[in-house]
Amino acid sequence: MSDRLTTPVVHLLLAVAALIIFALGFLVVADVIGRGVFNSPVKGTPELVSMSIVIICFLLAPYAVQSGGMLKADVLVGAFGGRGRAFSELASGVLGALFFGLIVWGGTEPALRAFMAGEYEGEGALRVPAWPARLVVVAGAALVVLIYLARAVRALRVLLGRATPPDVVA
C-alpha cells in the first residue's frame, strides 16, 4: 500500500547516492592530480568526502531496508518456517521503526539549528556546511521508519493468517 508511494522516492535516493559515489571517485582523483601535478589540491576534499559518506549512508538506508538487503541471521528462525520468518520480520519492523524513529526525533532540532545558525565543519577556506548531511540523516531515517512500519504490518498479517507468507520476504 504505502509501497506505491515510497518506492519511487526510495529508488530516486538510491540513484542520487550512487551518483555521489561515482562523483567522489572523480573528486578524489582531481585532488590527487591537483596535488601531485600542479601542487594545488582541491581545497576541502577530505571535508567534502567525509560529509558525503554520511549523506550516502542515509540516502541508501531506505533502499537497503525496502529491498531486504539488511543483513540478518535467520537460520534459527528459519527452522520455524514461514511463521518464524514473519515473526522476525515483525520484530525487525517494530524495533527498526523505533530505532530510526529515535534518529528522527533527536536529529530534527539539530538539523534545523544547523541550517538557521549556519553550522559548519572544518575551518577557513575549507568550511563545509553541516545542514545538508544533518537533513539527509533525518529525512532518510524518517523514510526508513515508514518502510519498517509497513513491513511490520505485513508480517503481522502473515502471523494472523490474513495473508500468505511470501516466499521472498523482501
Binding site: S40, P41, K43, P46, G122, E123, G124, A125, L126
Partner: peptide, 18 residues
C-alpha cells in the same frame, strides 16, 4: 587543526585541516 591555519597565510603556504 582549525583556527591556527590562519598563521600560515603570511608564509603563502596552503592550509590543510587535519
Amino acid at each position: 587543526a582549525g583556527l591556527n591555519l590562519k598563521w600560515l597565510e603570511y608564509a603563502g603556504a596552503t592550509p590543510v585541516q587535519s
